[in-house]
Computed example of a mutant assay.
Amino acid sequence: MRIENAPTLTIEHPEAGAGQSVVARGVWQVHAFSRSGFKDIEKTLKSLAGKQVAWDLSEVASLDHIGAQLLWSSWGKRRPEQLKLDPKQEELFDRIEKSGRIELPRTRKSHLQWVITLGGGVLSFFEHLRGAITLIGQVVQDIGRFIRHPLSGPWREVSANIYHSGFQALGITALVGFLIGVVLSYLSAQQLRMFGGDIYLVNILGMSIIRELGPLLAAILVAGRSGSSITAQLGVMRVTEELDAMLVMGISHGYRLIMPKVVALALAMPLLVVWTDAMALIGGMVSAKIELNLTMRYFIQKLPSAVPIVNYTIGLAKGVAFGMLIALVSCHFGLRIKPNTESLGRGTTTSVVTAITVVILADAVFAIIFSGVGF
Rank of each mutant, 00 (worst) to 15 (best):
E242Q: 15
L243C: 12
D244L: 13
D244K: 13
M249W: 13
M249A: 10
G250I: 02
H253L: 10
H253N: 15
G254H: 14
G254R: 11
Y255V: 04
L257H: 02
I258D: 02
M259V: 08
K261M: 07
L265N: 05
A266R: 02
L267T: 08
L267W: 11
A268G: 10
M269E: 11
M269W: 15
L271K: 04
V273H: 00
T276H: 03
D277R: 01
D277F: 01
A278R: 04
A280D: 05
L281N: 01
I282V: 14
G283P: 12
G284E: 00
S287Y: 00
I290G: 10
E291K: 13
E291H: 12
N293M: 08
N293V: 08
L294Y: 09
R297W: 14
Y298K: 06
I300S: 09
L303C: 07
L303I: 08
S305K: 15
A306T: 00
A306M: 11
P308W: 02
V310F: 06
V310S: 09
N311Y: 07
T313R: 09
T313D: 10
T313C: 14
T313A: 15
I314T: 07
G319V: 02
G319A: 06
A321T: 02
F322Q: 01
M324V: 10
L325D: 05
I326T: 05
A327G: 03
L328N: 07
S330H: 01
H332A: 14
F333A: 02
L335K: 00
R336V: 00
I337M: 12
I337P: 09
K338L: 06
P339E: 04
P339H: 04
T341K: 06
T341H: 07
E342P: 03
E342T: 09
G345R: 11
R346E: 05
R346N: 07
T348K: 13
T349I: 14
T350K: 15
T350Q: 15
T350N: 15
T350A: 14
V353C: 03
V353E: 04
T354Q: 09
A355P: 00
I356K: 03
I356C: 10
